[in-house]
Design a protein around this nucleic acid. Structure first.
Lengths: 188, 188, 188, 188
DNA sequence: CATGAATGAGCCTTCATTCAT
DNA sequence: AATGAATGAAGGCTCATTCAT
C-alpha cells in the first residue's frame, strides 16, 4: 500500500536497477547512480526517479533481509526456550549481516532515507528486544547488557568478521565463532 | 634515529599539521590534505612534502597509540597472572581504539603506507599474540579462538561502541561492557 | 554510421568545442580541456564527455585533414604519371601539415587515442606507400629510401618550415622550397 | 673570460649538475631543476644559482656541441673543394643534432637565455652561411635556397630522424639517408 | 655560497544532480 | 515516464620559484 502500483515498464526498470545494484554491492563496488543506470541499461533520470539518493537504493536492497529477519524473529518468539530463541535469532542476524553488505550499512546508519526503512528497523529492533528481555527475565542472560546493545553488538561482530578476510566463507566462519564466544559471555 | 632531524621551522609545521589532523580525525571529518594545509596555515605543498598521502598522515597520527599500547603489552608480559595480563592489555587496547579514531582505521587497514607502521603493527600483534597464547596454555581461555582473532575482535568491539553513540563517554562505557561480555565468553 | 547521431544540443556543443580547440591549436596555445570548456562556454564535464583526453580532441581536429589527404592520395593513384602523382600528393601533404598544427602532432605521435585515428593513419600511409612504390618501380625515385621514410620526411619538412618563422605565408613558402629540394634529391 | 672563476667547491657542484643534466637529457627525461638538484646531491638553490632557468642549463649543455661544430666549420672553410666542405660540415652537424638532444632544442629555439649561446649560435650560423655561399658562388648548389635555410633544414632532418625511431643507431642511420637525399637535391 | 623547506597557482579529473528533449 | 547531456563544485596533485636558515 505504501508504494503506488507501477506501470509494467516502470516495474521492469525498477527490477533491473535493484538487481544491478545488488550485484555492485555484493562485489564491493561503491554505489554510484550514474554507474547503476549505465549497467542497468536505463537513463540516469530513471534511477533518480525511483531512488532519489544512493541511500534510498541501498535501503531498498536491505529491505529483503530486514523482512526475512523480522519474520524469523517473530517465529522465535513462539519458541518456549528463551535462550534457544534468542541465540537462534542472533545467529541468523549475523549470517545476514555478513552475507548482505547493504544490511550492515543500513543497520549501522543513524538515520534513514525511506520511512519504510525506519519502520522495518523499528519492528526488527522491537522483536529482538523482546527476545532479549524474555531471556533476561528468565535469568539466562547477563544483566549488565540491555536490549539496546543488541544492534551495536551484531554490527560489531559483522565488522570483525569482515576485517582482514575478503573470502566469503572465511567471513561466515569467523562470524559464527565470534558470536559463539559472545553468547558464552552473555549466558549466565 | 628513526626520523631524520628536522629543521626548526619544518618541525613546527610538522607539528601544526599533525595537530590539525588530530583535531579533524577526532571530530570525524575525513582527512583532506588541502583542507589540513589550509587549517594549519601552511601551503598544500608543505603537507604533501611531509605526508605524501592521506594514509601516511593517518598512520603518523596512529603511531603514538601504537607505541603506547606496545609498551603496555610488554609490561603485561611481565605479569605472573596470564589472565589478568591478557584482559588488562585488551582493556587498554579497546580504550585506545575508542578514543583515537586514527588507531581503529589504521588497525583495520590491510596495507600500510609507512614501513614504520607495518613494523609497529607487527610488534604489537606479536605481543598481543604472546599474551593470548600464554593464557591459552594456562588453560584460562577458550580453545576455539586463536591469537589471529584478537585484532578483528578488538576492531569489532570498537566499531560496536561507535555505532549509535556519538558521545565519547557513552562510547567508552559501551566498549567496556562489550569487552567484559566477550571476556566472560573467552574465559573457561 | 561512424559517429553516433548526436542530439541537437549535444551536436552544437561538440561543434563549439572543436571550433574553439581549432583556434587554440592554430594560435599555438597548448590544449587544456578546462580552458577549452571555458572558452566554449560549456562545463568541463561536457568537454570530458565528448573528449576523454587532450589527445582525443586533437585527433578529432586532425581527422578532417587526414580524410582530405587520403582522398587526394586516392585520386593521385589514378594518375598515369607516377612521378607527378607522388610529388603532387607530397605537396598537398606538406601544405596540410604546415597549415594544420593538429595534423603534424597526430602524424608524429607513436600511438593514438582513438581507433578511428589509427585507421585513418593506416589508410593514408598505405596510399602514400603505394604512390611511392609505384614511382620507385618506374625507376623515377632513388632506391635507398623506402616508403617508411615518407612520414618522417614530411614531418621533418613541416618542422623545418615552422622553425624560426611564425608568419603563416613564410611557412608555406619555406615548406614548398624544402619539398622541392627534397624531391630533386629523390628523383633519379 | 665570460664566466667568473669559480671556487673549487662551486666548480665541483657545477660539474655535477651539468653531468646529471646531460644524463637526463640523454635518456629523454624532461629537465626539472628540483630533480636535477636531487640527483646531483645538491640543494635546489645551488642549481638556481648556477642556472637561473631550465633553458640556461640546457644551453650550457649544448655549448660543447656548438663549439665543436664551429671548429669543424672553420676547418672546412680551409678546404679547397666547396662542395666537399659544405657537405662534410652538414654531415657533422646532423650527427651532432641527432646525438645531442640539447643541441636540437637550443638550435631550434627562437630566443636564448644566455648571451654566450647567442654568440655561439651567431658564429656557427655565420660559418655555415659562408660555406653555403662559397658553394653557391662556385655554382655547385641550387639557387633557390639561401644560407638562412640551413638551420631549419638541419633541424628538420634531425626531427625526421627522431620521429618513430627511439633506437639511437636507427636515428643516426636515418639522418644520414635523409641528408644524402637532401644533398642530392641541393647539388646542381 | 649552499641548503632544502615552503609556497600556491595551476591543471587535471570525477561525480551528484538537474533539466531540456 | 524515460532519457542522457550538461553542469560545475570539489578534490587531488605537481612543480617552478622564493627565501629563511
Amino acid at each position: 500500500m505504501t508504494t503506488a502500483p507501477l506501470r509494467k515498464d516502470a516495474a521492469r526498470n525498477w527490477e533491473r536497477i535493484v538487481a544491478v545494484a545488488r550485484d555492485l554491492v555484493e562485489e564491493g563496488t561503491p554505489l554510484q547512480l550514474n554507474d547503476v543506470a549505465h549497467r542497468a541499461g536505463v537513463g540516469v533520470g530513471t534511477v533518480y526517479r525511483h531512488f532519489p539518493t544512493t541511500e534510498a537504493l541501498l535501503e531498498t536492497l536491505a529491505t529483503r533481509s530486514l523482512e526475512t529477519l523480522t519474520a524469523h524473529g517473530e517465529q522465535a518468539l513462539a519458541d518456549d526456550d528463551p535462550w534457544r530463541a534468542l541465540s537462534g535469532f542472533l545467529a541468523r542476524t549475523i549470517e545476514a549481516q555478513v552475507t548482505d553488505a547493504s544490511l550492515s550499512t543500513v543497520t549501522a546508519a543513524p538515520t534513514d532515507a525511506l520511512p519504510r526503512t525506519t519502520e522495518l528497523k523499528r519492528t526488527l529492533w522491537s522483536v529482538g528486544g523482546r527476545l532479549f528481555e524474555r531471556a533476561r527475565d528468565a535469568g539466562v542472560v547477563r544483566a549488565d547488557l540491555t536490549s539496546g546493545d543488541l544492534v551495536p553488538l551484531m554490527c560489531g561482530i559483522a565488522y570483525a568478521a569482515n576485517v582482514h578476510s575478503s573470502v566469503p566463507t572465511a567471513r561466515t566462519d569467523a562470524a559464527h565463532r565470534y558470536l559463539t564466544a559472545l553468547l558464552e559471555g552473555l549466558r549466565t
